[in-house]
């Protein structure tokens, strides 16, 4: 239950900061979508999405303060997703 106690230490300030940064990242995504960066458009969109989900998973979902086993499972799921992306790109990039 120590983990639960830690949750109490995140102040509203942190939540608001994370929320604001999510908004900033969203506006960057929208702005970048209007700029022609060729094939990098997709990678930048994915990179921003990855940072955003990292913030949500760690702070909003409290995974950062939880037991290691949850981190292991989320990392495994993330790894699987990563491989799925790579395999899909073998089609998109070489078609």
């Amino acid at each position: 239950m120590e983990a639960n106690n830690k949750e109490q230490h995140i102040g509203y300030g942190t939540y608001i900061l994370v929320w604001l940064s999510l908004l900033v990242f969203t506006s960057i995504t929208v702005t970048v979508a209007g700029v022609n960066l060729g094939r990098y458009t997709l990678f930048i969109a994915l990179l921003i999405a990855a940072i955003k989900s990292g913030l949500v998973i760690n702070i909003f979902m409290h995974i950062k303060f939880d037991e290691p086993i949850f981190k292991v499972f989320i990392a495994l799921s993330g790894f699987t997703l990563f491989i799925v992306f790579i395999l899909t790109f073998f089609d998109i990039l070489y078609r």
Partner: peptide
Amino acid sequence: LVWGHHMFSSGQSDTS
């Protein structure tokens, strides 16, 4: 890791 084997004739890349 094997879903693409349903798509050999779909027009996905030869590398895939």
